[in-house]
Structure formats: C-alpha cells, structure tokens
Amino acid sequence: SLNIVTVTLNMERHHFLGISIVGQSNDRGDGGIYIGSIMKGGAVAADGRIEPGDMLLQVNDVNFENMSNDDAVRVLREIVSQTGPISLTVAKC
C-alpha cells in the first residue's frame, strides 16, 4: 500500500516552495508527476517530509494524478502565486 502524506506549508515564513516537478510519462501518458529536486531555503526543504521521487497527488484542492507535465507546472505556479498556506499530498515511493 502506498504511504500517503499530506504536508501543509506556511508560505509566509518561506517565500518559495522550492521544488521542481517531473512528469514520468509512459506509453499511455499517465505516468504521474513526481518531485524532482528540492531547493534549500524553500518551504518544502524546511518541512523535510517530502523527498525527491515522491509522487505528487494533490496540491490544495487540485488533483495532479492524470495531469501532463506542462499542465502540472502551470497549475503549481498559479497556486504558488496566491497567498495562504499550501497543502501538498504525495505518495512515498
């Protein structure tokens, strides 16, 4: 069973999320979106629970499971540009 973790980040303390995301597209185009790298000083690094290779399932109320990489990057950028905490739900691989 997948270990699902939801992390809520206070964006007032850390001014950027600090992750890159990578799409693992397979033949069907539904390989999922994964955490690529984590930048020091960002909210994700400070929290420490999300790691490279984790699968990104949801951000706030947006489901990322069947999203293309381009869409995921765009949607994540829109969410980060808003104010307030950000909740990331990942599956630990």
Rank of each mutant, 00 (worst) to 15 (best):
I50N: 01
A72H: 02
I79Q: 04
N63V: 07
R13D: 14
G18R: 00
K92I: 00
T89L: 10
N3D: 05
L57H: 06
A91H: 15
L88N: 03
S68N: 13
V75N: 13
L56Q: 00
F64K: 01
D54H: 01
A72V: 04
L76G: 07
G29F: 08
D30M: 12
V75P: 02
V73I: 10
R74P: 10
M55T: 11
Q58F: 08
G18M: 00
R74H: 06
L9D: 02
S87W: 03
G84R: 10
C93M: 12
V59L: 10
I86Q: 08
N63S: 12
L56D: 02
T83S: 09
M11G: 03
K92S: 03
V75E: 09
N66W: 03
L9R: 00
V75H: 06
L17K: 01
F64T: 12
I4C: 03
V7K: 00
N66C: 06
R77I: 02
R77Q: 12
G23C: 04
V59E: 00
L76D: 01
I4Q: 04
G31T: 09
L57A: 02
M67G: 03
I86W: 08
A72K: 03
D30T: 05
V62N: 07
N3S: 04
Q58P: 00
S87E: 15
P85S: 13
D54A: 02
C93W: 02
I86G: 01
E78L: 08
T8L: 10
N3L: 02
F64G: 02
L88V: 15
E78R: 09
E78F: 10
P85I: 14
D71C: 15
E12A: 10
D70T: 09
D71K: 14
V7N: 02
L9A: 03
A91N: 15
N10S: 14
Q58Y: 14
I79M: 09
M11Q: 02
L56C: 00
F64M: 13
T83V: 10
S81H: 14
Q82A: 13
E65V: 04
M55A: 12
T8Y: 10
M67R: 07
R13C: 07
D70M: 03
N3W: 02
L57W: 05
M11I: 10
V90S: 01
R77F: 03
G84L: 08
L9G: 00
N69K: 13
I4G: 03
L76H: 00
D30R: 07
G31M: 13
L76F: 12
L88P: 00
E65I: 04
Q82G: 05
L76M: 07
D61T: 08
V59D: 00
V73R: 15
L57K: 12
Q82C: 15
D30V: 08
Q58M: 12
D70P: 12
R13T: 10
M67T: 08
T8G: 06
Q82E: 14
V59I: 10
V7E: 02
V62Q: 09
S1P: 03
V90D: 01
T6P: 05
S1F: 07
M55K: 05
S81R: 09
M55I: 12
D70H: 08
G23S: 13
V22C: 12
S87P: 01
F64L: 04
Q58H: 13
R13P: 10
A72S: 05
E12I: 05
C93K: 15
I4N: 06
V90C: 15
G31V: 07
I79C: 07
R74M: 14
L2V: 04
V73H: 14
Q82L: 05
I79R: 08
R77M: 04
G31D: 15
D30N: 09
V62R: 07
V7F: 05
N66G: 08
N69E: 10
D54Y: 00
I38V: 15
V7Y: 12
S1D: 11
R13N: 14
S68H: 11
G31I: 05
E78V: 05
R74F: 04
V22L: 08
I38T: 02
F64S: 00
N60V: 00
D70E: 13
D54T: 00
V7Q: 01
R74E: 08
S87N: 14
V7G: 00
N63T: 08
T6I: 09
M55H: 12
N66A: 09
D30K: 11
S68W: 03
L2Q: 12
G31E: 14
G36C: 06
N60A: 04
V73F: 04
N3E: 03
N3R: 03
V90T: 06
L88D: 08
G23Y: 07
A72Y: 01
G84F: 03
L17T: 03
I79L: 12
A91T: 06
A72W: 00
T83H: 10
V62Y: 09
T6A: 04
L56K: 01
L2R: 04
L76K: 00
L88A: 02
R77P: 10
V73K: 13
H14Q: 13
C93E: 15
D70G: 08
D71G: 05
M11R: 09
V22E: 08
R13F: 11
L57E: 02
G23Q: 10
G84P: 08
C93S: 13
V59W: 00
N66T: 10
G32H: 11
N3P: 04
S81I: 07
C93T: 15
D27Y: 09
N60L: 00
L56Y: 00
I4P: 07
K92W: 02
S68V: 13
L17M: 05
P85D: 05
D71F: 05
G31L: 05
E78I: 13
D30L: 08
V80I: 12
Q82M: 13
D30G: 06
V90M: 00
K92T: 03
G18P: 01
R77S: 11
R74K: 09
T8R: 09
V7P: 01
E65T: 12
M67H: 10
Q82I: 06
L9Q: 00
E78C: 09
V5F: 13
V5K: 13
D61Q: 07
M67V: 08
D70A: 07
E65G: 04
C93I: 01
V5C: 09
C93F: 03
D30C: 05
N69Q: 13
V5M: 14
A72R: 02
V59T: 02
E12K: 11
S87L: 09
L9N: 00
G31C: 04
L76A: 14
G23F: 02
L88R: 00
G48S: 08
T83C: 13
L56F: 02
Q82R: 11
Y34N: 15
D47H: 15
M55S: 08
G18V: 00
T89S: 12
V75Q: 10
V62E: 03
T8H: 07
D54K: 00
N3A: 02
V62F: 06
I79V: 05
V80K: 12
G53C: 03
A72T: 02
